[in-house]
Simulated scan of single mutants.
Amino acid sequence: MQVWSVPLGKPPPQIDRPSAPLKTNGPAFAAQCKDWDEWEKPAPPVRLHANTYLVGTCGIAAILITGNEGHILIDGGTEVGAPLIAENISRLGFKLRDVRIILQSHEHYDHVGGIGRLQQLTGAQVYASRAAAKVLETGVAGADDPQAGMHKPFRSARVDHVLADGVPVRLGNLMLTPIATPGHSPGALSWHWGACDGGVCRRIVYADSLSPISRDDYRFSDHPAYVAAYRAGLARLAAVECDILATPHPSASAMVERLGKASIEDPQACAAYASDIGKKLDERLAKERLK
């Protein structure tokens, strides 16, 4: 038995407890948020596993991965939502200036509109896919985006590094790997990495939204190369090792329900998610053939 020797008048040493544990903050998130909730509604941060935290709003996810040489943030919400993400990072006890890299999922204003503001607050470098980089630097969706013209312009950001599919991003003891998953947007990326809490290691995947949504006059079937790239990305996502799935819109992967139960592990989640998106794409193409 271990016996603590405590000097008279001093409190015993305390065991560090992780901030925002899933057991308590998961249900707190679910109590405050609902499916397809407001993009700028504050939500509590949640420790998903080990050094990986959900730090976004009720309706828009952002993911913080902490490391020994600084932290990586994926997505920045809207420009109005960016300060809420910054506040959640601070609530967890981390310094904004220790966020060294900001990554993206897909280049629409509800997920990257706040990156310019967060880059200013943190001093972080922004890494983006080649197609997304152009959008981040102009604040306007590219002409080849199925949703081009649907969204208002957003605050631009300085892109410091262009990413390549499958080439990891490294920062100290962190390594995150991008998966090119175009479809919802041309420059969309999904991300996967490992996280260990003591001897309990899990593979975490932040899978892009991927739904085949577009402006009224866009037809996916008129762009066969794009559809082929769309399907290839889904296949890559389905094949990746995946214990915990998160998505840019929490409700796209039943995150609110899963957080409410404080149970978010499912090794089949990524394959099921990719399969569901594939079916939605098939349905969209079938509808287009009828017009």
Rank of each mutant, 00 (worst) to 15 (best):
residue 178 P to Q: 06
residue 175 M to G: 05
residue 162 V to S: 07
residue 257 E to T: 11
residue 250 P to M: 05
residue 209 S to C: 10
residue 168 P to V: 03
residue 201 C to H: 11
residue 137 E to C: 06
residue 156 S to G: 00
residue 243 D to F: 12
residue 237 L to D: 08
residue 134 K to E: 14
residue 185 S to G: 13
residue 173 N to Q: 05
residue 215 R to P: 03
residue 186 P to I: 11
residue 184 H to K: 00
residue 237 L to G: 06
residue 173 N to T: 00
residue 163 L to V: 13
residue 238 A to E: 12
residue 264 I to H: 02
residue 212 P to C: 05
residue 209 S to H: 15
residue 236 R to C: 04
residue 203 R to L: 09
residue 230 Y to W: 13
residue 218 Y to M: 03
residue 151 H to R: 09
residue 259 L to I: 09
residue 221 S to L: 02
residue 144 D to Q: 12
residue 227 V to P: 04
residue 156 S to M: 00
residue 181 T to H: 08
residue 224 P to N: 09
residue 138 T to P: 11
residue 175 M to E: 15
residue 262 A to Q: 11
residue 189 L to N: 14
residue 196 C to R: 10
residue 217 D to G: 03
residue 245 L to V: 04
residue 147 Q to E: 13
residue 134 K to S: 08
residue 235 A to R: 14
residue 167 V to L: 07
residue 245 L to S: 03
residue 173 N to A: 04
residue 157 A to H: 03
residue 232 A to N: 13
residue 223 H to Y: 09
residue 214 S to H: 07
residue 147 Q to I: 00
residue 240 V to A: 04
residue 158 R to N: 11
residue 165 D to A: 08
residue 245 L to T: 05
residue 264 I to E: 00
residue 174 L to T: 04
residue 188 A to T: 11
residue 165 D to K: 00
residue 195 A to M: 05
residue 213 I to A: 08
residue 157 A to D: 01
residue 168 P to M: 07
residue 207 A to C: 00
residue 235 A to L: 09
residue 167 V to Y: 04
residue 184 H to P: 01
